[in-house]
């Protein structure tokens, strides 16, 4: 089976506050994520994207429908550890997911829990820190690191469990532009070089441009799904659900209105400028 994550008619509601109606956070999500794919899941706050992410390694269990992780039903409790080993999760707040006060000890936390032999843990910790480019910090205290560095440590902690897939649940939301770049470059490299499946949950549109596939969520449903060039150009629809299109797309839309014959899907700065220059010449 080449799907790492598959959901079918997935529904979920959070327990309601006293005297209130339960609000359904997921209203029937059917989604398959193929192995090796870089998927970005977009949506405004409250669209259900984080709830969906938390189903991907059994932090939350479906209320209705089913979630399979590498063919394993997440409701099967005997498979819990295996599911969580295979799909690692990186969260939003870098401070609240680091367990130890030495970087390498923290990276070792996952393998230690899995009962990996000591020499093997050492090898994995070193390899994981190298993979995120943090090997020189292995004996540092995490609270002295920058936000981006902390998130890279969190990613290393996940990699040390040798997962097939990493889910990043708004892991870039609290970072400055430099920290975001560090994290994005790291996951992109892991995806390309190690073939690790990436599911990145975000509301930054520019992060979506680099994905293989963009899934847009709104009020508990998947409303758009496709390659970035097909999705990010739908300016009006994106705005209507509280998102934005990249400025490049906004510009190209505008220029079309002005009567310039430019394509809409030149997402990157170089492509966009190239397309405009070409249109100006002809």
């Amino acid at each position: 089976m080449s799907d790492i994550i598959k959901t079918e008619h997935l529904t979920f509601s959070y327990p309601p506050d006293e005297g209130k109606e339960p609000v359904q956070a997921l209203k029937g999500v059917d989604l398959t994520i193929e192995k090796g794919c870089f998927t970005v899941i977009l949506g405004h706050n409250g669209s259900g994207k984080s709830t969906l992410a938390k189903h991907m390694n059994a932090v939350l269990l479906p209320e209705g429908g089913t979630v399979w992780v590498d063919g394993m039903d997440t409701r099967d409790e005997s498979l819990l550890l295996e599911i969580r080993r295979r799909v690692g999760m990186v969260f939003q707040n870098p401070d609240n997911q680091i367990v130890a006060n030495v970087v390498e000890e923290d990276v070792a936390f996952g393998p230690e829990n899995l009962g990996v032999p000591t020499e093997e843990i050492r090898r994995r910790v070193d390899a994981a820190l190298r993979a995120v480019g943090m090997e020189e910090f292995c004996l540092h205290a995490p609270h002295h690191l920058s936000g981006g560095q902390k998130q890279r440590i969190a990613i290393a902690g996940v990699i040390a469990m040798e997962p097939a897939c990493i889910v990043l649940d708004e892991s870039t939301a609290m970072l400055d532009p430099m920290g975001r770049r560090e994290v994005l470059d790291t996951v992109r490299r892991l995806n390309r070089e190690k073939g690790i499946t990436i599911a990145l949950i975000t509301h930054h549109m520019d992060e979506a441009a680099m994905a293989d596939r963009v899934v847009v969520m709104d009020s508990g449903r998947v409303v758009m799904d496709g390659p970035p060039r097909k999705i990010l150009v739908r300016l009006e629809e994106l705005r209507a659900i509280g998102l934005d299109a990249p400025h490049t797309v906004e510009l190209l839309h505008g220029l079309r209105e002005d009567g310039l014959d430019v394509p809409l899907d030149a997402l990157s700065v170089t492509e966009c400028a190239g397309a405009i220059a070409q249109a100006l010449q002809s």
Partner: peptide, 19 residues
């Protein structure tokens, strides 16, 4: 933190190894 620890397969001291 509790959720993050569970996601990294923490399930108490049983069968834990050490770096």
């Amino acid at each position: 933190l509790a959720v993050a620890m569970e996601c990294r397969c923490y399930h108490g001291g049983q069968g834990r190894t050490k770096l």
